[in-house]
Design a protein around this nucleic acid. Structure first.
Lengths: 236, 236
DNA sequence: TGTACATCAGTGAACGCGCGTTCACTGATGTAC
DNA sequence: TGTACATCAGTGAACGCGCGTTCACTGATGTAC
């Protein structure tokens, strides 16, 4: 249930311009987009470290310095790729939410949709490890987690989708309002940590079955634990 | 409560040999250890990527290739540093567990000790971000999470400490035995994810107060959620 | 205790790599008149 | 519709950097006799 996810790297009809290493015309036409496409593919293949100006320009068939007409520096390019990757994650999550069948019970529906956010997040992480690490591993602060650049075709960012479902949980009475604040971070931490441990951490060698077995337990733990959290405990 | 942690980088009395950039004698005496010390310091300052053979040898005052008498290659060195860093994490966690006061109620004690594992993990992560990322970000499989090299002075690895406390929870009746299997991964994921989001992910900008506020809620969520997890839900 | 010699643990120089970025440049485009 | 010219979007070459790693070497050490 967590394998066959297709994430289109370049949904735009711009591929023609990238087909050959040599362009017909001196001017490229849409170099910014082409570089972004190529860089996204690099991220997909090898994560954030694989986003390399020279390689991206090489793939597009353009001189290395041409990139600097469109991006201030490598970091600028990388951030653009990260935003895009977040958008793709958002679409997988949105799809996961939309796939939840409506059983007519509001509270149950809210719960299952909430869990679908986590499962979608993990599905994306495991299907596109490189993009995932680029989307959520590159240090970009929370403020950008709500910016339009990081939104998918669904119009929302992953963080927003999570917030939406938490709000819905409260509305449906599945989560006490006093537990709502900061709940994003608690939920996000759990799935993010699992993804990181499984992708580049000590769990890297874990067989896919084990991962698929754990994922639903993890989101269940969050779902159930979230509503029970009391006032912060002093000391530790 | 989560700030003043002192982690000694080189607990051994070998510092004398490293004092000057030039040794008195041609032979170093304990170059392997010295390189490990220097590399650990590099990791402490800049994470795994900062572990660089040339810089380590430079700091020790030895030619770059001398390192290859003691480590097969850079990766070999990095793995040794990662194991050491895991050991240091283990000691912080062990300390955190030991600091839990005994109130005479077995179940409560087990719970608070279990939470102390998570809080200790986060304390280490925030106090020593570079070492943390080296310890748990470098892809080393789970098998090594139980190896002696990754143990601290307390004799246990972080993973083992976590397992120990989960076992104690079951013994104390704080965790149903049928939920015990795989519980390490659920708990670990939550704190690991929070640490990663806060250290190099989108939460990087989060103020320390926010982090200290969330940490106890997070481990509480895990503690409470863990015991409630039912049989895996199909579909999603 | 003295010495020959194998072995160990360093050195210095170099290789090849790929990177980000800057420089002065030129070909293509589009707009004003 | 034709043309002059500013602007835009590329090029080619180069700089400087730091890295991991290998080579042939030599100084220091310790052991057998």
């Amino acid at each position: 249930m967590m394998r066959s996810v297709t994430v289109s790297t370049a949904p735009e009809p711009e591929r023609a311009a990238r087909s050959g290493p040599r362009r017909a015309t001196y001017h490229h036409g849409d170099l910014r987009r082409a570089l972004l496409d190529a860089s996204t593919e690099l991220a997909r293949e090898g994560g954030p470290d694989a986003v390399v100006v020279r390689e991206a320009t090489r793939r597009v068939g353009v001189s290395a310095n041409a990139a600097y007409r469109h991006f201030a520096d490598r970091d600028d390019l990388l951030e653009a790729v990260a935003s895009r990757a977040q958008g793709q994650a958002a679409d997988v999550i949105a799809e996961s939410i939309a796939a939840v069948p409506d059983d007519g019970v509001e509270q149950s529906l809210a719960r299952r949709r909430f869990r679908a956010v986590g499962l979608g997040y993990l599905r994306f992480a495991l299907a596109e490890p490189g993009l995932f690490r680029t989307a959520f591993g590159v240090p970009v602060d929370l403020s950008r987690s709500g910016s339009p650049e990081a939104a998918g075709q669904c119009g929302r960012t992953p963080f927003q989708l999570l917030s939406d479902q938490l709000d819905a949980m409260v509305s449906a009475g599945a989560l006490p309002p006093e537990q709502r604040e900061g709940a994003e971070l608690l939920a996000w931490s759990a799935v993010h940590g699992f993804a990181m441990l499984a992708l580049e951490g000590p769990l890297r060698g874990l067989p896919p079955e084990a991962i698929e077995h754990i994922a639903p337990r993890l989101v269940e733990m969050v779902d159930l634990g979230l509503g029970l959290v009391e006032s912060p405990v002093a000391g530790g």
